[in-house]
C-alpha cells in the first residue's frame, strides 16, 4: 500500500489538485448554463479515447482488436458528439448579442 502511494505520488498530487480546480471552476455558474456545461464536461471525459487508442495500438489478438476497435468508435462518439451537441446549444446563446 505505502509503496503503491510512493510510486504514484505525482499522480496522486495531480488528482487532489484537479479535484479542487474542478470545484473552483463550477462554483458560480448561472443555472442557464448548467445544461451546456454538463454537455461540455461530457465531451471532455471523452478523453478516455486516448486509452482506447493505446490499447488498440498495442493489440495483437483478434478479440482485443475487435473490442479495441469498438472502444475507439465509442470514444470518438463521446468526443465528437459531445462537442458538436454543446456547440449547437451554445450557438443559440450567441445569436443573442
Amino acid at each position: 500500500m505505502l509503496s503503491f502511494i510512493n510510486e504514484h505520488l505525482q499522480l496522486i498530487y495531480l488528482i487532489v489538485l484537479m479535484v479542487f480546480v474542478g470545484i473552483e471552476l463550477i462554483g458560480h455558474v448561472p443555472s442557464v448554463l448548467h445544461t451546456p456545461l454538463m454537455s461540455g464536461a461530457n465531451a471532455i471525459h471523452g478523453v478516455v479515447i486516448i486509452g482506447s487508442i493505446i490499447v488498440m495500438g498495442e493489440a495483437t489478438h483478434t478479440i482485443s482488436l475487435v473490442l479495441g476497435f469498438l472502444a475507439v468508435v465509442l470514444g470518438t462518439l463521446n468526443v465528437v458528439g459531445g462537442f458538436v451537441v454543446t456547440d449547437r446549444m451554445l450557438e443559440m446563446f450567441k445569436k443573442k448579442k
Binding site: 474542478g22 471532455i44 471525459h45
Partner: peptide, 8 residues
C-alpha cells in the same frame, strides 16, 4: 480530464 469532470 477525468478528474476535472469527476469533481466538476
Amino acid at each position: 480530464g477525468g478528474i476535472l469532470v469527476g469533481s466538476a
